[in-house]
Structure formats: structure tokens, C-alpha cells
Amino acid sequence: SNREKAKQAFKELLRDKAVPSNASWEQAMKMVVTDPRYSALPKLSEKKQAFNAYKAQRE
């Protein structure tokens, strides 16, 4: 689905920018907000969900 693709793109973005798994949401956003993939997930709640999944995978 498109939403799954968007989630993957967002997680790839976090990986590409080397966002550490112990980063806070605010720290992570400063690192990725300028990338076009930041807008892949329109809802903030979805971004946070993908971010938390990313962190869980990295730990």
C-alpha cells in the first residue's frame, strides 16, 4: 500500500541521515525536516509511529 511505502521511505530517511536510536523526536526532526521524504507521511502521528518503529529496530 501507499501508506506502507511512505512508512518505509520515512524510515529510510532516518537511516540515511544516521539518526541515532536514542535521539528524541525533536532532535530527529531537526535532522530530517529539510528532506523531501519528510513529507511522505502526511500525519504527524504516522511520522512518530514510524520513528518509534525505527528506534525499536535500531536498538
Rank of each mutant, 00 (worst) to 15 (best):
D35A: 01
Q49T: 06
W25Y: 10
V33S: 15
L44D: 08
N52K: 14
S45W: 05
E59D: 09
A6H: 09
L44K: 08
F10A: 11
P36T: 08
P36R: 09
E4I: 13
A28G: 04
Q27K: 08
L41A: 04
N22F: 00
A18S: 12
A6M: 03
K17N: 12
S24T: 15
F10R: 07
Q8S: 06
N2I: 04
W25N: 14
Q49E: 15
Y38V: 06
Q8W: 02
P20I: 01
R15T: 11
S45Q: 10
T34I: 02
K5W: 03
K48S: 06
R15V: 13
R37I: 09
R15P: 02
W25D: 11
E12D: 10
M31Q: 08
N52M: 14
Q57T: 10
K5R: 10
P20F: 00
K55G: 06
V33Y: 08
V32Y: 02
K30W: 00
Y38G: 05
Q8R: 09
P42L: 08
M29Q: 14
A53T: 11
V19H: 00
L41D: 05
A40G: 09
S24V: 01
M31K: 08
K11C: 14
K55W: 00
K47S: 04
Y38D: 07
A40I: 03
T34F: 06
F10E: 12
N2L: 02
A53F: 00
Q8G: 07
K43C: 14
M31R: 08
E46R: 00
M31E: 11
Q8F: 05
K55V: 11
A50E: 09
Y38L: 03
A18G: 15
A9R: 06
L14N: 06
S21G: 11
K30R: 13
R58I: 01
T34L: 06
K7Y: 13
D35T: 01
P20A: 04
L41P: 07
V32H: 12
S24C: 06
S1F: 15
A50Q: 09
K55S: 08
R58F: 10
R58W: 14
L44P: 08
K7E: 15
R15G: 09
E59N: 04
Q49H: 05
W25L: 09
K47P: 06
V33K: 15
D16M: 00
A40F: 14
W25H: 06
K47Q: 09
Y38F: 13
A40P: 01
K7N: 12
K7C: 08
E12C: 02
S39M: 12
A50P: 06
A56G: 09
A50R: 00
N52F: 00
A6R: 06
R37T: 01
S1V: 15
E4F: 07
R58Y: 15
